[in-house]
Amino acid sequence: MGQKLDDVDIVENSSTLFKYLFPFIYFFLVSDVLKFDEFPKIIKETYYRILAFNNVLIIVGLITGAFFLTTYKGPWRFGYDGLIFAQNEASFVFIFAITTVYYRRFYLGIKEWMFWIVLLPSILVATKGIFLYLIVLALFHILIRVSLVKVLGILAGLLTFVYILLNSFINEILLNSYAVFMYMYNKGGLLFALLSGRDQFINEKLVPLISGYWVFPNYIFGGQEVKDYYIEMGFFDLFLFFGLFGCIIYLYVFYRIFSLIPFERKFKIFFALSLLLIIATAGHFFESGIAGLHFLLMLLIIHFSIKQKNQEMVSKPK
């Protein structure tokens, strides 16, 4: 049987539709900016200042324990994300910021304090998405860009020094993360712990929706009551909202936008796979205006950073 119209929250679903489409709407402005000869400095400077201000608030939160600056609602989980209200959005905001400063530093040779201003506070956000991305980025960096023997020696020395200096603080993060993980593992198993319980939503929400309410057109065009059937896993929610046909169109448009980021080939493949993995296991990317905005800011900054670098190389005397 089909879902009754009076069961659907039109306002909530309309709001979610706008959130899904927001990155594409904003991209119309971005596509015009990409045609500029130079990047408007005010955009990058404003972006950097907002990141720096929020990261200062993360440090303030760490020192004061201010509840409104924490990543998680409950007091049992460690994490501070400043003024970013949704933890999944915080993950994507920092993933795009980390990617921006990392690529500028190691691929374009642009050394800036923002690299550390972004990287160090991101650890304090303490979401699985950020930890996962930092780990795979470190592995990618070691395997692709650095001699393994050299990096192991440097890394061992650096980690030892940092641990000696900040051992009580690091222990708090690690022990808290481990305790939370083991609690989730004992409660529901490995998959439950890795997905923060989202695997249960498949049985409790997705299966009842598509088996009890959906009819054939829903599989093609979707039909999700967001308030009751939000799975919090990006591709599941995208399929439920738009259906197979809409999902394909949506991902194709997103792919065309993603293809405009002029990353080096190996890094682009790495970043795409990492992003897909995190989107697949977390919500609040496709339907987040904040995450979409930061994704497009990353695109703009990298595009013009490469363009400026190329111009500098051409203008250098031979």
Rank of each mutant, 00 (worst) to 15 (best):
G82M: 05
Y48E: 14
H303A: 06
K227L: 13
L137F: 04
S91V: 08
L5I: 15
Y178W: 13
Y102D: 06
F85Q: 11
Q3L: 14
V215M: 08
L143V: 09
I98G: 06
F53A: 15
G129S: 10
R77Y: 05
F161M: 14
Y219V: 03
S315A: 14
L148K: 14
C247D: 11
V8Y: 09
L134P: 04
I142T: 12
S315T: 02
T16F: 06
F258M: 12
L174V: 14
Y48S: 13
F245H: 05
Y47S: 08
E287Y: 15
F241Q: 02
S147P: 10
I43V: 12
A126R: 03
I154A: 12
M313R: 11
L152G: 11
Y230E: 13
K309F: 14
F161N: 07
F115Y: 13
D228V: 07
I63G: 10
F28C: 14
H303W: 14
P208G: 01
F241A: 02
Y107W: 11
S211Y: 07
Y133K: 00
D237F: 04
A272Y: 06
L300P: 03
E89F: 01
G2A: 10
T160E: 09
V146Y: 11
E38Y: 13
Y178V: 11
A291M: 08
T281W: 05
Y107H: 15
R105W: 08
I164C: 01
P121L: 01
G129I: 02
N218L: 04
K19E: 14
S274D: 07
A179G: 11
E112A: 15
I173C: 02
W214A: 07
I249T: 10
L275M: 15
G2M: 12
V8N: 05
L159K: 01
L277K: 05
N203V: 08
V253I: 14
L34N: 03
Y252I: 13
L244Q: 10
F267V: 01
P40Q: 09
F131D: 07
K318L: 15
E204P: 02
G65I: 05
Q311P: 03
V180A: 13
V101G: 03
C247V: 05
I261M: 06
M184A: 11
I63H: 12
Q87R: 10
I278D: 00
G234Y: 02
K187I: 08
L108I: 08
N167F: 09
G188Q: 01
N186Q: 13
L132K: 03
Y185E: 15
H284A: 08
W76Y: 12
L17W: 05
K19W: 09
I50K: 08
Y252R: 07
Y185R: 15
K307S: 05
I110F: 12
F181S: 06
V56N: 09
N176M: 04
G283T: 04
A86P: 00
D7T: 09
N176H: 05
T70P: 02
G246S: 07
K316L: 08
G189L: 06
I173T: 01
M114T: 03
D37A: 09
V118F: 01
L143M: 13
K4S: 13
I279V: 14
V162Y: 04
F263E: 04
L120A: 13
R198M: 08
K111Y: 10
F22N: 01
L273R: 04
